[in-house]
Amino acid sequence: MRVTIKDVANKAQVSPSTVSRVIAGNGRIGKDTILRVRQVLDELGYHPHHAAQGLAKRTTCTLGIILPRTPDDVFSNFFFPELIRGISTRASRSGFDILMATGSLAQEERESLTRMVRGGRVDGVVLLSSRLEDPLIRLLEEEQFPYVLIGRNDYSASTLSVDTDNIRAAYELTQHLIAQGNQRIGFVAGPANMIVNRDRLEGYRKAMEEAGYPVQNEWIIDGELLQQSGFRAISMLMELEDRPTALVVIDDGVCFGVLRGLGELGYHVPQDISLAAFNNIALSELSTPSLTSIDIGTYQLGYTAAHQLLLLLAGEEKAKSRFIIPHRLVVRESSLRK
Rank of each mutant, 00 (worst) to 15 (best):
L286T: 06
N77Y: 01
A282H: 10
R118V: 04
K57L: 09
R337L: 08
S112E: 13
F75Q: 04
T288R: 07
Y147L: 09
T70R: 03
A233I: 08
I178A: 11
S15W: 11
G25A: 09
I234W: 01
S274Q: 01
F79W: 03
E143N: 12
P214Y: 11
I84A: 00
N166Y: 08
A101I: 08
E317Y: 07
V74E: 07
R243S: 08
W219S: 03
L83S: 02
M194I: 14
P214K: 00
S287C: 10
E111F: 11
V8S: 10
E264S: 05
G151K: 00
R58S: 06
P48F: 04
V248T: 11
L160I: 07
A91H: 02
A314L: 12
K11F: 14
H50Q: 13
L113Y: 08
S94H: 03
N279E: 12
F80D: 03
L291H: 00
K31Y: 15
A319E: 15
L259D: 02
D163V: 02
S76R: 10
R152H: 14
S158I: 05
R21N: 14
V19Y: 03
A12D: 09
D97V: 06
I65S: 00
N279K: 05
I250S: 06
H50L: 12
L67H: 00
L310A: 05
L283Y: 02
K338G: 10
P214W: 10
G181T: 14
V19P: 06
L247T: 04
L41I: 13
R115L: 14
Y303K: 06
G103W: 00
R93E: 12
A306H: 01
L311W: 06
S161I: 00
D123W: 03
V3E: 09
L291C: 04
R260S: 06
S88M: 02
E141K: 12
Y147H: 12
P326C: 13
A282S: 12
P326H: 11
G297D: 01
S321Y: 10
S20L: 11
A192P: 09
E241L: 13
I66S: 04
L44A: 09
L312N: 08
A282R: 13
P81N: 07
L329K: 10
S88N: 08
E82W: 02
R90A: 05
T298F: 06
D222T: 14
E241D: 15
Y267E: 00
V331S: 09
K6N: 15
A282L: 15
V249L: 10
S284N: 06
P71T: 07
R2Y: 13
N166S: 10
Q228P: 04
A101S: 12
L136K: 05
L312A: 11
L265P: 05
L275E: 00
F278N: 01
A306I: 02
V162R: 01
Y213K: 10
T304G: 02
Q53Y: 02
L173D: 02
I273Y: 00
G190T: 07
I221C: 09
Y147I: 07
L275M: 06
V330P: 02
P16G: 07
H49W: 09
P71A: 07
Y204P: 05
L113D: 04
S334M: 07
G257T: 01
V40Y: 07
E111R: 13
I273C: 03
Q308N: 03
T18W: 10
